[in-house]
Write a protein that binds this DNA or RNA. Structure first.
Lengths: 205, 205
DNA sequence: GTCTATAATTTGATAGAC
DNA sequence: GTCTATCAAATTATAGAC
């Protein structure tokens, strides 16, 4: 007989709950009890499946980093004209962040907290963004004379900053510009087109 | 007799230590013992001077928020031409952040962690940014025809994002672009001019 | 696999001598 | 004001029955 209700396995329930709690509270602020409650199971189960808090966190963090970064490389290293690449980057990346709005502040905060730990041990080199090709592409376009002279590093910082920061400062923006969740989502949708336009208007000759 | 060595009072030593530890570890991750060790004093002293961890954190957080935000209002509400204001904002704000590079990730993270708590209780309304006047100024310039049509909210998000985000994503940028502390500082100095140029090139008619 | 009960550890907070 | 010693609470982790 085919199951109608797709019952999640206990492990999946734990992972979903852990993701929610860790992303909201961070590693240090999260409580194993909160995760167990959220998953609707017993605290002992967490240890049965994931041994300890560190291990559970590692799974969640790597999964989050996986979502947060690798798409970047795919886009950065694609064979595509510069302007098109900028448009593609904003569209793809904002789509991810709209679906996972707490990702940036979570990942970036944990990295800042324990740099050595993550970068040297947990984290593999190939998970990190590799902007090299993108930087070179910008330099080529400058030499070719299709865009204005600008430091490639500055340009890439502008692009990434405008794309990610609204999600980091979301609470601040929403609170003091009186923007509700629906409006925020709409503004982010607009940014998919707005950021590329803003950049291209600035650098095109 | 005049003191040559300016010996810090115990309270000042605690405040300096608490600032360092809280900014690095966050509220949840910071340990009272770490703060005591950093200050070179006993743990009991912390409670003698500040009663408990919450109170001590509150002092540090409000001080940090004070540095992080109010300058914004001063600039946002100044009587000044738009382009000049954008230049002034970047210059002033990046100067603050260069001297306090951990401020943004600390403040924004804590806000995200405990929205209701801080924003409604601890935090006074008048500490938050008030972008209203700035938004209106942008609209006026658009109607006047001096700049291109652009959503004021989008423009202000771009400005703030480009200014603050490099400090939030600093670890990421430095690690995978092979940028050392000195170079980072230099790049931020350049951004004081680079961001206004980038924006003005984009929106000027 | 799942639960209850409990151990072990960490950590914020206090008591009391000096 | 400052310290040592200690307590109390919170939190992670495990033992053992089912």
């Amino acid at each position: 007989m085919v199951k109608i209700k797709k019952e999640k396995s206990t492990e999946d329930k734990i992972l979903a709950a852990a993701k929610k709690i860790f992303l909201k509270k961070g590693m240090a602020g999260a409580r194993m009890q909160d995760i167990a409650d959220e998953a609707g199971i017993n605290k002992a189960m967490l240890h049965y499946y994931f041994r300890n808090k560190d291990k559970l966190f590692e799974v969640i963090f790597l999964d989050a980093a996986e979502k947060f970064f690798p798409k970047v490389n795919y886009i950065f290293e694609a064979e595509m004209p510069l302007f098109e690449k900028i448009e593609y980057f904003c569209d793809e990346y904002i789509s991810i962040l709209v679906e996972n709005p707490y990702l940036p502040v979570f990942v970036l905060n944990e990295i800042n907290r324990d740099l050595e730990g993550f970068l040297t041990n947990i984290w593999k080199k190939d998970r990190l963004p590799r902007p090299q090709k993108f930087l070179e592409q910008i330099e080529r376009e400058i030499k070719r004379g299709t865009i204005k002279r600008i430091s490639p590093v500055q340009l890439i910082m502008n692009l990434i900053s405008m794309t990610i920061f609204p999600f980091v400062g979301r609470a601040m923006f929403q609170y003091n510009m009186n923007i509700d969740d629906m409006q925020f989502r709409m503004i982010m949708e607009q940014r998919k087109k707005e950021i590329p336009k803003f950049i291209i208007d600035s650098i095109k000759k």
